[in-house]
């Protein structure tokens, strides 16, 4: 048992924790914006996957990081607008739209990948660019803390910045107020002249861009390649983190860290004598446990309000 603790309380583990958490934080923040506007975007998984591929392709064709970034974000926006169009304009059920996006993404990415590279599995045969790792001056010279907090990928730091940006957006700007109003009660919002559909379009687009960043983190930071289905459920974990954090940016940030902790734990525990299946189950069990605790807590607070 003490062996576990020596693994967990190591610099390596903390560093990995942050690395594993980054995509979940980015995408969960996107989910927050969507959720606050009253839309549950189940298509995050697919949006991530598409941005992951197009980011790689953009950097390959554009021969640089910037074209990759732009194409990745653009592709995520297109997919999100597609979702928004079907859900908001054509009034299709959001669960169906989201599932359709995910299914579409799984097939489309492989199809496009094969057209461009001739391979169906990975983009290893083309040269793509990655986001750089950043060493933070001063901080990097502090022992232990510097080793844990410095040297992460640019997108990791961007995720932290975006956490505050999203908070500012939601709680300090007129747009944020409108997004929240539309989410709380669309009819009331409409009655005072807020264009509900337009606000939701904007929220879904912001969400798409964040999910796109999360997707590109996988293929252009974590790994230097795109691989089919590489998101492997991270979009859904992000949605769960959003629900557990009660769509509050700080709460969601903490929930994302909790999930990432268990995910990271599952990477090291197998080395000890714990069955692989049990370890693989942990991040998901943590998700269910988290949601259960959340809903019990909520039921209690509702009861208190009514009594």
């Amino acid at each position: 048992m003490p062996a576990i603790f020596s693994y967990i309380f190591s610099v390596d583990f903390f560093f990995m924790w942050i690395r594993v958490a980054t995509p979940i934080i980015l995408v969960a923040l996107g989910a927050v914006v969507c959720e606050r506007s009253g839309v549950v975007n189940l298509g995050l998984e697919g949006t991530m996957l598409i941005a992951a591929l197009f980011g790689v392709l953009g950097s390959y064709f554009g021969k640089g990081l910037l074209p990759g970034f732009l194409l990745g974000i653009a592709s995520a926006l297109v997919v999100s607008l597609l979702f928004a169009f079907f859900h908001l304009v054509l009034k299709a059920n959001n669960v169906l739209c989201g599932t359709a996006i995910n299914t579409l993404a799984a097939g489309l990415t492989v199809f496009v990948l094969q057209m461009v590279t001739g391979e169906k599995g990975t983009s290893a045969s083309i040269k793509s660019y990655s986001y750089p790792e950043v060493n933070i001056p001063i901080l990097k010279d502090i022992p232990i803390l510097g080793e844990i907090l410095s040297g992460h990928n640019l997108l990791t730091y961007l995720a932290i910045v975006l956490l505050f940006v999203v908070m500012f957006l939601l709680f300090k700007t007129p747009l944020g107020l409108r997004i929240r109003a539309v989410g709380e009660n669309p009819h009331a919002a409409e009655s005072v002249g807020i264009p509900v559909v337009r606000i939701r379009f904007i929220a879904i687009s912001i969400c798409g861009a964040l999910a796109g960043l999360g997707g590109m983190y996988l293929s252009m930071a974590y790994l230097p390649i795109f691989a089919r289905d590489m998101t492997a459920g991270r979009g859904f974990i992000s949605l769960a983190a959003c629900a557990m954090g009660r769509a509050n940016p700080i709460g969601v940030f903490v929930s994302a860290l909790v999930f990432a902790f268990f995910d990271g734990l599952s990477n090291i525990l197998q080395v000890l004598r714990i069955p692989a299946e049990f370890v693989q189950m942990m991040p998901y069990a943590a998700t269910i446990l988290g949601l259960t605790i959340y809903s019990i807590h909520r039921a209690h607070s509702l009861q208190r309000k009514h009594s």
Binding site: M230, N267, Q270, V271
Partner: peptide, 25 residues
């Protein structure tokens, strides 16, 4: 010998983390 199973055929980032942990340890 330290052993890990990814538990998925597709989760490339997970394979990366697990392999990295093996080296780290």
């Amino acid at each position: 010998l330290m052993t890990s199973y990814v538990g998925s055929f597709e989760d490339v980032p997970k394979a990366l983390e697990m392999t990295k942990q093996l080296y780290n340890q």
